[in-house]
Amino acid sequence: MALFQYIVGRFVSYFVVLFIGLTITFFLPRLMPSDPIEQYIFELQSQAGQTMSPDEMANLRETLSQIYGLDGSLVSQYLGYLERVILHFDFGPSFASFPAPVIGFIVRALPWTLGLLVTTTLIAWTIGNLIGLRAGYHHNSRAATVMEVVGVALYPIPYYIVALVLIMVFGYLLSIFPLTTTIRPGPLTFAKMRVILYNSVLPALSIIVVGLGWNILSMKALSFAHKEEGYVTFARLKGTPSRTIMNSYVGRNSLLPQITGLTLSLGAIFSGALLIEILFSYPGMGLLMRTAASSGDYNMLYGTILVTIFAVATATLVLDLIYPVFDPRIRYR
């Protein structure tokens, strides 16, 4: 019964997050002083170098507000928006490349972001926890002190700084890896996979390096605290091998808060990955957002942000649903 309650609770908060995300992306642009339609018309005119007659202008304004979903009262706009987004995943057409629908661009960009993010997060989390567990368990050893210094030095460093340093060292000084991503479209062959891998090394490394710091420090503190518990002392007196104590006693128990920590920091990791993509011109959601921002492509912007919120919320939900597998206290309460 406890498990059932837990699952229902997670689903409720999942839908609350999605609903609030949808509502924010609906009201945010409408609260702003600038009018995207006026801006767009202004840009069109300055590009064309001539002005339109008032009649044409009114026509254009009407068509644009239909496409943007800006006609009718605020309530009917909101309901229409919810219906389009939830039922049809329809974010409208892109304005920079009219009339291609926004969703098509997102579907192409999303695998890049997810691929980069899932791989790097798994690597950083696993390696960080393995190192942190050892550093916490053998906290008096010299290696543990070194690892702690590494963790402290890595943790507070922002994503963009790591990216800049990597670009500087591996891109310019050593010229091993490319500065920006260049991947030609085409069928997924073995050679193309190598190109993708080669282009992804630096962006991936940036995310891993930042993630490592947090995981090492947090795991070290947890395993150090668990090591002092009574059940560990009992196991030691009982003659349990030190390796078993570290992995099955201390490690197993320290893992739970680490999973929760990962769940809670997914939003921050995603934000960091978006920035990394922009800096490396990696063809994912971040780059899509940045180009949409500079070309004033609002439909694209809201679409990418909604999908980002949706992705983070879904990943959090999945982790939360897996959690009872690791924590028997939720299963058998």
Partner: peptide
């Protein structure tokens, strides 16, 4: 708080920055 933590801030800031370009 859980909702606010789950929403990535950076994209929202990108939208705002674009709106007040």
């Amino acid at each position: 708080t859980d909702v606010i933590i789950a929403i990535p801030v950076f994209p929202i800031l990108i939208v705002l920055a674009t709106l007040v370009r």
